[in-house]
Structures are given as C-alpha cells and as structure tokens.
Design a protein around this nucleic acid. Structure first.
Lengths: 326, 326
DNA sequence: ATGTTTCATGCAACCGGTTGCAGCTCGCGA
DNA sequence: TCGCGAGCTGCAACCGGTTGCATGAAACAT
C-alpha cells in the first residue's frame, strides 16, 4: 500500500491536518514542522492522492479532451497545444477517442464528468440535445461546432471554402466538386453552403459528393465519383481525403494538378510532404487548442460565459492546383 | 450542484446504503425498492461519482496510456486497439502525450497514479531507475522497451532490422546507412545492434547516422548526411523519418529507389500513401494494444507477473527499394 | 408454537484528503 | 503584570460513495 496522510502524521508526530496543510497551504505551517513533515513524507514515499483531494476541493486539475479520431493529423497539433498550455496553468489534459461513435462519445463524457474539471469537445458527433443535457454535469468548450449557450471556438471554414473555390475559379475551372465530410459533421455543412455560394457567385458549377469518411480511405473511395462528375477542380473535406483522392485519381491515370486540381483543408504535415504538395486551407489549430483551454478554465472558474471565438483561416497554395486546360 | 447519493436516499425514503447497493449490487435490493430508487435517481439526474467510488473500492476502471508523441502515426492504431479492447472489459483509456520530455512523462505518471488502475507506457523515455521507482505506485505495462520485473510487450525490431538489411543486401547494396532514432530510445539501440550484425554477416558496410528526431523533420535533416555517406541503401528509425528522408533526397536531386533505396519501419498509413510507396517493416501495433490491456488488467487483478511478450514483425516490400546499380 | 433461515434494510465506520473553528503559546505594548 | 493579537496546531465535520455487521420481518420446517 502507498503511504497516506495519516501514516505521515503518525510518523512525524503531528495531526493529519498539519500534514495536509504542509502540502496544500505551506505558509500556514511553521517552517520547522514543515521540514520535518516533508522529510518524513519523502521517506515514506508519500504522494497526495489527487482523487481524494478532488473530492473535497471539487477541483481535479485535469481537463478532458474528446476527439472523434485520434489518427486524424488535424488533432495532434491541437492536442499538443492544449496540453502544453494547460501545463502552464497547472492542469493536465487527458485525451479520449470516440472512434466517430456518438454512443461512445456520450459514455466517455459521462465517465469523465467527475474526474476532470471540464471537457474540450472537438468536432463532436453527438446531437445538440444530448450535449446540452450533459452540459449540466460538467463545463464544456466546443471546438468546430456551433452550439448556442456554450463557449465555442470555430475556425472559419466558410471563409476557407470560399477562398478555395475562388482560387479554383480564378485558375479557370468551371466545373467543381466538393468531396464532403461525414453526415454528422457541422463543419461539412458549413463548407457545403459556403462553397455553393462562392461557386454560384463565380458562375461555376458545383457538385457535392458524399458523405465520405474523413480519412484517406474516404478520399480513395470518392475518386471514381470525381472522375465521373467531370469536375476539374475539387475541394475536399480535409487533407486526408485530398491525399486519398489524389492517390485514387492517380490509380485511374488522372494526374494532379495536370488533369484535376485538388484543394485540401487543415494544412497537416502529411499534406506538406505529399507529392504533389497539397494546396490547402490552413487552420489555426494550435491557437484553437490554447484558446480552448483558456476558455475552459475560465468557465470552470466563474461558471459559464458563452463566448464565440472565430479564428481566421487562410489558403496555402502549393502544387496540387494548377490552371485549367483550355 | 449535481445530485448525490444522499439526495436520492432522502427523496426516496431509504438509507444511502440502499441507494448505493441499487447501483453497485442490485441483486441485494428488493425489486420494488430498487425501481423506486432508480426512478428517483433518474428524476434527479443522479450519476454515481466515479472518483468517490474509486476511493473506497480502489478501482477506477480507467487505464492511462502514455505516449511520447501522439502525432506519430505509429501510435493511433495501438491507442485505438487498446481503447476498443478496454471497453469490452468495462474500462476506459485516457491518453497523455509527453512531448518526448522525460520530465513531463514523470509528472504525468504521478498525476495518473491514483486516477487509473494501471498505466500503459509506450516507448518511455524515462530511465529504468525512475520507472522502477514509479512502479511502486501503480501497475505498469511497458511497450517497446525491456525493463526487467515488469510485464513487457516487445515488437521484434531486431528481427525487423535484420530482414530489412538482408533485403537491401539481397538487392545488391553494399554500402548501407541506418538513420537512427532519438538517443533515449531503447528501440533504436536494438535496431542498431541487429542492423550492424546483419550487415556484417552479409559483408556489407553500415554507417550509423544520428541520433535523429523520430519525425519527418528528422528525416529531412539527415538527408545531407546520407548523401555524404555514399550509402545506396538506408534503413530508417521509422516511416516518418523515411518519408522525410525521401523528401530531403528528392530536394537534392537524388531519386528513390533509382539512386537510393529506403526502408521504413512501422507500416503506417502515411507510408502506404507516400509516393513512392514505402518498403517497410510492419509492426503488429493493434495486437500490441490489445495484449497490453489484457496484461495490465491481469496485473491489476493479481498484483504483478512480469511476462515478456515478443511480437513478430515482417517486411513489406513496396516501391521505395530497388536493385543496386552495378 | 418455536427455532432456523433467508431476505431486505439500516447503521456506522471507512477510503484519503480539506477546512472552519477553537485553543494554545508566545511576544509585545501598556 | 495583564491583555491582546499573531502564529501554529489540533479537532472534527465533511466530500460521495462502499461494505461488514446487526437488526427485523417474513418464510419455512418441525
């Protein structure tokens, strides 16, 4: 068994409350006593039990971070930024993966409820109704989805989609396709609307293909439809889909960017190292991670503002897009 | 505030212990009472506080999973397999990223200690001594590193390295290089030894380059050294390094596999979608994740076996390796 | 009618900490 | 010399559950 506060108290001849204070409010205990207690504690290998502490203080100093798919390279920078930033605030971040399954997502949130002070929900797949219900149990910050009444961080995908479409029409493409994301995705809906509007404004045609899995497989799978559609410019749900799509097109003898231009979204490292290097919409994921933590800790503190933060996106032009052939 | 067991007890006119049993040992309470309690609980939105429960039972039903770098595509399959498998055992997995920093790693383990029933250490960067000390506080299962006295899962990288080197020498390459991993990595040490032995056995030369960061950047950075070494066959620490290296060689006008053959390790999706598709050593990561969970739950149960499980690796030949030019 | 089980529930201690309050000691000023 | 405040420390209740034991009632056997 590991040593408890009472073991330390007994061994150093003081009351448990003194030991407790030695760790949680050192200035309240006499330097001499404190040193003795610390020495004994060290000796016994005592470590405060954070779970027990949380029971009375109501603060775990942990935050939960829930993502739909940890293997999507979009998330790691966000996770790392959140983690690093949380550490400066004396918090730790624990990540859980829902595997794109709303049921698992709900279960995880339930489990997390009393073990963390707040939860960061990244691209949740749960319905608004369920999220609102769960919100009664634990503070949330939502990333990549708009739910009113909750602190929210959005990346301006609409703007990104517009930039991408304008880039494509600017290169002379008149027949465009959007390889959409999964059906539950709020982001995908935003992209669709913005892309449709931007295409209409430029007098280009836009066909929506999907829903697709937000993965390379999704991209591979949609390649046939892209070819069939006759589109020469494609905007994809994310970089992964773009990479898969390019591979799929390649397998069909369609060259990128010579025959078809492809624009990704997220600006992941994989996209940067793909060949051709991806033209993509860059998302401020690290900033989102940091801000999310700040927002969360703030709403843990005071109880709940419902700020909406929208972060700008920008287009990064690389090699996967080119002029339309005349 | 959320409802507690006492609120439910009061509202349904029974003692708290009855409410407690309703949830944790339903068969001990009369069906009628049980239903009444459940109804009241539902009504009040009561959820058992898992942290409080853990305090008396000593079981959190959580397991911690610590990785050095969550953005390394090697980990997600392992994480997902562990998570899925744990769920079938009524456990949840929480992941933390150490950012390759031993200090952060230690801190995280400390934090996790009383909040999980056991910890999965994947490719830990901490010294054996520290790990052994921490082991007194919480059960461990170690993946990708040999620490005696602890349940361990190893992927046979030595075998993988041998296969890779033999593949290269079989193609006629006589001057080989190993782009090693970070200095703290046990795996990297294993690779180095096995590769050296295999090269010697085939009468080929092997130069060790590194240590390198286990990332694309690491691969990019080592490209110059590879060129300078005159090697025509390169084994890298992992797929990421291989991808970065290929990119770096490409920038220097060196073609893969025409001028230089490159073998990765891990068989990640990125490697499969890279162009050229990576020849690589496949690691049984999903199996490792599942087995790790089993081992951990087992040692949570009985107290600590120190099994050593070694998983086979295999070589997957794709497009990044080819015959040496004569 | 009595003794023995069985079943359901209550009681109270306990898990490992925290914290408001009270009491003690000491030094200082009057 | 006394009173007072400051500084430490102890006491005990509390956080939200669990669980061994005792109690009481009903069911059963004799």
């Amino acid at each position: 068994m590991t040593a408890t506060i009472r073991d330390v108290a007994r061994a150093s001849g003081v009351h448990v409350s003194t030991v407790s204070r030695t760790f949680s409010a050192p200035h309240l205990v006499n330097a001499e006593t404190r040193n003795r207690v610390l020495a004994v504690a060290e000796d016994l290998g005592y470590r405060p039990n954070r779970a027990a502490r949380a029971l009375t203080t109501g603060r775990t100093h942990n935050i939960g971070l829930i993502v739909a798919d940890i293997s999507n390279p979009f998330f790691p920078p966000l996770i790392k930024a959140a983690q690093a930033h949380a550490r400066t605030r004396d918090y730790h971040v624990f990540v859980a993966d829902t595997d794109e399954d709303p049921q698992v997502e709900e279960e995880l949130i339930q489990t997390l409820t009393k073990q963390v002070d707040g939860v960061l929900l990244c691209s949740p797949r749960l319905s608004n109704r369920v999220i609102e219900r769960l919100h009664a149990d634990v503070p949330f910050v939502v990333v990549n989805r708009r739910i009113k009444g909750m602190p929210t961080i959005l990346m301006d995908v609409a703007q990104g989609a517009r930039l991408a479409i304008e880039h494509l029409t600017g290169l002379g493409h008149r027949r465009l396709a959007l390889a959409a994301g999964p059906s539950g995705s709020w982001t995908s809906g935003q992209m669709r609307e913005a892309a449709a509007a931007a295409a209409a404004a430029s007098g280009a045609e836009l066909v929506i293909l999907g829903p697709n899995a937000p993965t390379e497989q999704g991209g591979l799978a949609v390649a046939a439809e892209v070819v069939a559609s006759g589109a020469t410019g494609v905007l994809t749900y994310n970089d992964l889909v773009a990479i898969g799509l390019i591979e799929g097109l390649y397998e069909r003898g369609v060259r990128v960017p010579d025959d078809v231009s492809v624009v990704g979204v997220d600006d992941t490292l994989s996209g940067r190292l793909n060949r051709p290097k991806l033209t993509t919409v860059a998302m401020p994921t690290s900033a989102a991670g940091r801000i999310a933590v700040d927002l969360l800790l703030q709403s843990v503190g005071d109880g709940g503002t419902s700020t909406l933060t929208t972060l700008e996106t920008r287009l990064v032009v690389r090699e996967s897009t080119g002029e339309a052939r005349s």
